[in-house]
Design a protein around this nucleic acid. Structure first.
Length: 522
RNA sequence: GGCCCCGUCGUCUAGUCUGGCCUAGGACACCAGGUUUUCAUCCUGGCGACAGGGGUUCGAAUCCCCUCGGGGUCACCA
């Protein structure tokens, strides 16, 4: 049969199944997919890193498609690359998707009727299917060495041909192959691509057809005994009765290989839907160099969760061409694969920020305060206990600064001036310049400092009116006082109503800051 | 390079299947004006696209052909 050299030293379970011929008719039966069987979709991320925005989008579309059609959504971990797969990444993916608000019906941490849900744990089944495919003549052992393979590739490239396997081992008689394998010669298993054409239904791109002559006799199982992605993904999708495969367009060219495999396995292929790629600035696949490509980047920067979800919905899909802001329920209700756009689109970071602001501004002060709290603490402005002890004050700051921030992490920068020492408020150049352009600033500020204590106990709106009246009496324009005052109080060129700022500062700090301002702006 | 996918304002997108309602709509960005003590918000306005060329048709963003452009993929990675 086909024991391999790898059998002895490979750390995976013994390959007992490999050489066990299974009669085709004894293949474990695949449940037939009748019209009444439920729609089943899945995502199959490899746990090798953080959640990329593309994965988040794919997950969201799968989830919405299932939820909108009473289907089931499955999470399966593609951990075939053992060197790169980690449990930390697995946990991060599960937590990240949960944080987004997605839920799935079956998964590695949940179990389900089609488990296990880690590809590495399905290895016996993959070997079983490999064996039967060899038995039925759909796959064959390839004894070529990697040296020979690269030689062939180089020769093809030199001749300007498409590099592909020359099918050298394809016609080796099965008896001979068995003898060579038994003698310990290493081999990989390749799929025997038939002649003809392979087409499939793609709900986004209609029908797609490939010439089989263009398809390589691809490797299903490596010499090491490890199956490859194209092999296991189709096996698992078949076993799990996945009915619709929604994934990124980079997988489009893999699809005919998988479709051929389904046919060899004797099962019908699922319906596909290849989603347009998320692109970076240069119209190339969005990658790390584009910055901020992980879901966690946005969570950590304080993008509202609903804004992230909403924006993800718009990556390849539009509600009506008019409405940009809509919730998940609306998405689930209206989402259809036929409406997914075909062209890849550049990820618009500007619009994302804008949308974040739309959601942030809709939050109540209380909710926003909670969302911003960790960022304020992280910035070192307050510890949580102190901040909670003066919650009403914090809420007033939130109300005051709300319209100027779009993401939670922007608050600490906006309110930092409130925490500065009163004689050392950092004056931004633009603010100081604006203050200094008024000739009578020092005198006006000094006079105001004298006038203020008797009036500052009044509500801010009233104080504002009285201050303006005071200025009118002196026949002075408003900016003459307000610009130096703003600089003294906040050091910023813009910001909330000055009298609300005074409220937040308190009388003592207000007076101290004006006093310091008289000197510093002299 | 082969194969495959795609092509509407700077960007995202509606309209394309089922030609006429398109003088091509909306949003972000940008610019100008208004509101405001400033910034922000908000309001008003502006800028700005059917890749190109041939057909078919009374009529084409929409159907057909060609060209050009962009992307994806060509592993014993996933």
């Amino acid at each position: 049969m086909f024991p391999s050299r790898a059998q002895a030293n490979h750390r995976s379970p013994p390959r007992a199944q490999v050489g066990r011929w299974i009669e085709p008719h004894r293949l474990p039966p695949y449940p037939s997919r009748s019209m009444s069987s439920p729609l089943r979709v899945r995502i199959a991320p490899s746990p090798t890193g953080a959640i990329h925005l593309g994965l988040a989008r794919t997950a969201l579309f799968n989830w919405a498609y299932a939820r909108g059609r009473k289907g089931q959504f499955v999470l399966r971990l593609e951990d075939t690359d053992r060197a790169r797969s980690t449990r930390e990444s697995e946990t991060a993916i599960i937590e990240g998707l949960r944080w987004l608000g997605l839920d799935w019906d079956e998964g590695p941490e949940l179990g389900g009727d089609y488990g296990p849900y880690r590809q590495s744990e399905r290895i016996d089944r993959h070997r079983e299917l490999m064996g039967s495919l060899m038995e039925t003549g759909h796959a064959y052992a390839c004894f070529c060495t990697s040296e020979r393979l690269s030689e062939v590739r180089e020769r093809q490239q030199a001749a300007n041909e498409t590099p592909r396997y020359d099918r050298c081992c394809r016609e080796i008689p099965i008896e001979e192959a068995q003898v060579r394998a038994a003698s310990g010669e290493a081999f990989a298993v390749r799929f025997k691509v038939p002649t003809g054409q392979t087409g499939f239904q793609d709900l986004v791109r209609k029908e797609v057809v490939f010439e089989n002559g263009e398809i390589d006799d691809w490797v299903m199982v490596r010499q090491s005994g490890d199956p490859t992605y194209n092999f296991v993904v189709a096996c698992d999708d078949a076993d799990m009765e996945i009915t619709h495969v929604l994934r990124g367009e980079e997988h489009l060219v893999n699809t005919p290989k998988q479709v051929l495999l389904y046919a060899a396995l004797g099962v019908s292929a699922p319906v596909f839907a290849h989603l347009p790629l998320l692109l970076g600035k240069g119209r190339k696949k969005l990658s790390k160099r584009d910055g901020g490509v992980s879901l966690s980047d946005y969570r950590d920067q304080g993008y509202p969760r609903e804004a992230i979800l909403n924006f993800l919905c718009m990556q390849g899909w539009a509600l009506d061409g008019e409405t940009d802001v809509f919730d998940l329920a609306t998405f689930v209700e209206h989402f259809d694969l036929e409406d997914v756009s075909r062209g890849g689109a550049i990820f618009d970071f500007d619009k994302f920020l804008w949308l974040a602001g739309e959601y942030l501004h809709k939050e109540t002060d209380e909710v926003l305060a909670e969302h911003c709290l960790p960022f304020v603490v992280d910035a070192g402005l307050f510890n949580e206990v102190d901040l909670r002890a003066r919650w009403d004050w914090y809420l007033s700051v939130i109300a005051m600064e709300k319209e100027r921030i779009r993401i939670y992490s922007e608050l600490p920068g906006r309110m930092a001036y409130l925490c500065a020492p009163d004689d050392q408020v950092e004056y931004l150049p633009k603010a100081e310049k604006g203050a200094r352009k008024h000739e009578g600033r020092t005198q006006t500020l000094t006079d105001y400092l004298a006038w203020l204590p008797e009036h500052s106990s009044k509500p801010s709106a009233e104080l504002a009116e009285e201050t303006k009246a005071w200025l009118a009496e002196r026949e002075q324009k408003i900016p003459l006082l307000f610009q130096p005052l703003r600089c003294a109080l906040t050091g910023l060129p813009g910001g909330p109503d000055l009298f609300e700022v005074m409220d937040a500062l308190g009388q003592a700090a207000t007076l101290d800051r004006i006093r310091a301002g008289v000197e510093r702006l002299a």
